[in-house]
Design a protein around this nucleic acid. Structure first.
Lengths: 190, 190
DNA sequence: TGTACATCAGTGAACGCGCGTTCACTGATGTAC
DNA sequence: TGTACATCAGTGAACGCGCGTTCACTGATGTAC
């Protein structure tokens, strides 16, 4: 049953959004195309009308995840006072919501090890995401001595990513919550 | 061909060491039992003479990886002056060697997202590894105000884990090296 | 210490299953006149 | 604007493949006397 151009574009976007979420929730290797297509309310046979292969879907879904992440970060940054923007970013990133809800998960915290082994295209998208994240943080600490800005931004990002990874891994909820709080304070050098 | 008890124990340990390395190198889902057994110089059929299932191998291999990591960390700590021990730990952890060589990779940096989705046994082993790592760092900063010790230790560990994850992910070698350096300085609050 | 037999580590083939991918088919959409 | 036909989004079955797991078989090791 052929669909209109608008419907086709909508379906493609639906697959992309579903894939972006499912990959972050269950990992790339552990998420089958059937899982994605079924979650999107489609049968798996139609996948190749929209994407060339699973690999290209991974790249596009990863871009999508980063775009959503940065959209959320930028919204928070713009809504904050100039000198509270870094704190707003850190608070937004290290929330229990982002730990528990794969919809909000940062791809760096859920997919990084798999992406290290992925093809070059996917690695470049991931690399670009890291660069963009570092640049975003740099903008928020521009009042530091310029030699320190990049170093500090990298340190903050490392703390955010590591803190979230550990908070997800730890079994005890109380410990997990504490990791988010402690990573926050460390990132902000409180 | 039946083997002696000593040989059997050696084979089991060989499978365990190989698995520990391969899981960290290629991920759990992406490493087949055949891969492990072949790397160990065996055929895959014999696996079940030593382990009940892939899941139990994962748990044991994970324990093995943590034990090796803490052995290395403790050796470095004991070899350092009291007030330079944290720096020694951070330097040891954030080396390019540990980034490039799966033999040295910390399981928290390569397996964390997969372990979040693993069965309870594996998650408990991972949780215990995190706790042990935090305790190790706490011992090295015992001169801080006691209320701050745990918070600081969690912050340091977050920075170490996140820094290594990002250093592995980034494509440009120069950027990757810089991430290791910047994360080191941030962890040590320099 | 020597013999007879049960045990079991390792082999290699087989199992069912789910994966990524392909394909014949369908019927509504898009296009050409 | 209406008609005729080509296109193609989606379905559902099929493909080869590698996975985790099982099993019959082998022959050296361990055990009992």
């Amino acid at each position: 049953v052929r669909r209109s151009r608008v419907e086709t574009a909508e379906t493609r976007q639906l697959i992309l959004d579903t894939a972006s979420r499912e990959f972050r929730r269950n990992g790339i290797a552990e998420t089958g195309l059937s899982d994605i297509m079924n979650s999107a309310g489609l049968t798996h046979g139609g996948f190749y009308r929209h994407f060339e292969s699973k690999d290209t879907l991974v790249c596009e879904a990863l871009k999508e995840a980063f775009d959503q992440l940065f959209e959320g970060l930028n919204t928070r940054i713009e809504a904050s006072a100039r000198n509270a923007a870094l704190e707003a970013l850190v608070d937004y990133y290290l929330t229990p919501d982002r730990r528990d809800d794969c919809e909000l998960a940062c791809p760096l915290t859920t997919l990084a090890p798999e992406l290290c082994r992925a093809n070059r295209s996917a690695r470049l998208v991931a690399s670009a995401g890291v660069d963009r994240f570092i640049s975003t943080i740099q903008m928020l600490i521009a009042d530091l001595p310029s030699a320190e800005i990049q170093a500090r931004a990298v340190g903050v990002l490392s703390t955010l990513v590591g803190g979230m990874v550990l908070a997800r891994l730890v079994e005890a909820r109380s410990m997990s919550d504490r990791i988010l709080r402690d990573a926050r304070e460390f990132a902000l050098q409180i």
